[in-house]
Write a protein that binds this DNA or RNA. Structure first.
Lengths: 190, 190
DNA sequence: GTCTATATTGCGATAGAC
DNA sequence: GTCTATCGCAATATAGAC
């Protein structure tokens, strides 16, 4: 195992793809862009991934693992409302990156929907896992309408991320985050 | 003026572009796709638009006029909360189309952000006009935090449209629409 | 297993006939 | 003004040398 294969080129490519796809979007990103970011020769990509679609799929799953790790960290907090508010604070903490490139999950979902391949189903699954977890938190708060609340919270973030990106204004996401925290508190009290 | 130039090929092209760009996305749409939809020969497009970007720009402005017309119709309603609720109902009424292709404005904004040209600023202006109008309605309701509320309402819709599209479930937008209507009512009463 | 050189394709854009 | 034929380029994918 030489130094150049350290960490595995396949993993390097998938990891670089997550970053570059977020910054440039799926359509504007070439295999050369990802290969350069991963420090792997262009033609070599096809040894690890048969098609561009397979590399994108690996990137989506890698991104899904990031989200799973985040959820795992949130689980350590004491109450559901603390966990949800920490989730919102995490989103607000990425407001600068979001202003530049949008929400990684949301932009991916929007773009992949326009393609013929089935990759939009893959992002939908990743997004669905996080949405289910949010629903679980509201359910733990004793809310019968947990699903509807989960959709509302997640949609509020996704929309705020889109506006933040469109108007290049990180403050929008921060302000909306504070509003959502107050909203979560109000639900916990009722 | 022959029959084939009726309505103007330039207008036909811009109008067809609005539809096709919504359905297929900017990147997947070729000039040939738009020309076919407008029933205009491919090469002829360049007589009316010097570049693909200019055609997209014309499509954005055409879409902006649609939104302006919608706002004009809403203006005829008696109270700000009626106008805002009618806006939400209009969004919910497009839930099937939204499940298939997403919000026309939001998907356009997300995609154009990834491009080098300045077209993302053009969509931002169009979206900004609608956002300003919503803000004006909340202000007319006597709310000092009108801007924040406008962002919250618009973001809630944009996010719900994204989830509706991602999960291919029109019901999400309908349910979220009802929640937003109750929210508007609660603001009017306070 | 790794990398280079090249085949292939599809699209934006242009030249120029009518 | 309208349309056809084609150029040029960029990007995916492959063949095959090392």
């Amino acid at each position: 195992m030489t130094d150049s294969t350290r960490a595995g080129k396949r993993e390097r490519l998938a990891g670089a793809a997550v970053r570059v796809l977020h910054e440039q979007g799926v359509e504007k990103t070439t295999l050369a862009d990802i290969a350069r970011a991963a420090d792997v020769p262009v033609g070599n990509v096809y040894y690890y991934f048969k098609t561009k679609d397979q590399l994108i799929e690996a990137a989506i799953e890698e991104h899904g693992h990031h989200l799973d790790d985040m959820v795992e960290a949130l689980e350590r907090l004491g109450t559901p409302q603390e966990r949800l508010k920490a989730l919102v604070q995490g989103w607000a903490g990425e407001s600068d990156l979001t202003a530049r490139y949008g929400c990684p999950t949301g932009t991916l979902a929007a773009e992949l929907d326009k393609r013929d391949d089935g990759l939009d189903r893959t992002v939908a699954k990743v997004m669905g896992r996080l949405l289910d977890w949010v629903e679980g938190q509201f359910a733990a708060m004793g809310r019968a309408d947990a699903r509807e609340l989960a959709v509302a919270l997640f949609a509020a973030y996704q929309g705020a991320a889109l506006l933040t990106n469109t108007f290049r204004d990180p403050g929008l996401l921060v302000t909306e985050g504070r509003r959502l925290e107050r909203w979560i508190d109000s639900l916990a009290r009722s």
